[in-house]
Computed example of a mutant assay.
Amino acid sequence: MSAKVANRRSERLRRRKETFLLKAMELGEFPGVDIAVVICQNGRYSTFTSVEDESWPPSMENL
């Protein structure tokens, strides 16, 4: 894969991730809805939770 194709693919994935997290934030604003998002990319984890609680999100074993 050429560097140009890899850069395009990386940029597209970054934009999709950003949009996905924005949608998760929007859903988390509804009453009674708790959102937890875990994204693993190249061994790195990105997380988002709509609840500020120590027990949320559930551990990976509980999922």
Rank of each mutant, 00 (worst) to 15 (best):
M1E: 02
M1N: 05
A3V: 08
A3T: 09
K4R: 03
K4S: 10
K4P: 05
V5G: 08
V5K: 01
A6M: 07
N7G: 04
N7Y: 09
N7H: 11
N7V: 11
N7M: 10
R8P: 02
R8A: 13
R8L: 03
R9E: 08
R9V: 12
R9G: 01
R9D: 01
S10G: 10
S10L: 13
S10K: 11
S10Q: 08
S10R: 11
E11S: 06
R12I: 09
L13I: 05
L13Q: 05
R14I: 01
R15M: 10
R15Q: 15
R15F: 13
R15H: 14
R16N: 05
K17T: 00
K17Q: 00
E18F: 08
E18T: 15
E18H: 08
E18I: 05
T19C: 12
F20D: 04
F20S: 04
F20Q: 04
F20I: 11
L21I: 03
L21W: 03
L21H: 09
L22T: 13
L22H: 15
K23Q: 14
K23D: 05
A24L: 04
M25F: 09
M25I: 13
E26C: 14
E26K: 07
L27Q: 07
L27H: 09
L27F: 04
G28Y: 00
G28V: 00
G28L: 00
E29V: 06
E29L: 13
F30E: 05
F30Q: 06
F30N: 06
P31V: 14
G32I: 09
V33H: 07
V33P: 07
V33Q: 11
D34T: 04
I35T: 05
I35M: 12
I35Q: 06
I35C: 01
I35H: 01
A36S: 12
A36C: 02
V37W: 03
V37L: 11
V37E: 12
V38Y: 13
V38M: 14
I39M: 05
C40T: 15
C40P: 12
C40S: 13
N42W: 11
N42C: 02
N42E: 08
G43T: 06
R44N: 15
R44F: 03
S46G: 06
S46A: 03
T47F: 03
T47V: 04
F48K: 01
F48S: 10
F48C: 02
T49M: 03
T49L: 01
T49C: 01
T49H: 00
V51S: 08
V51R: 11
V51Q: 05
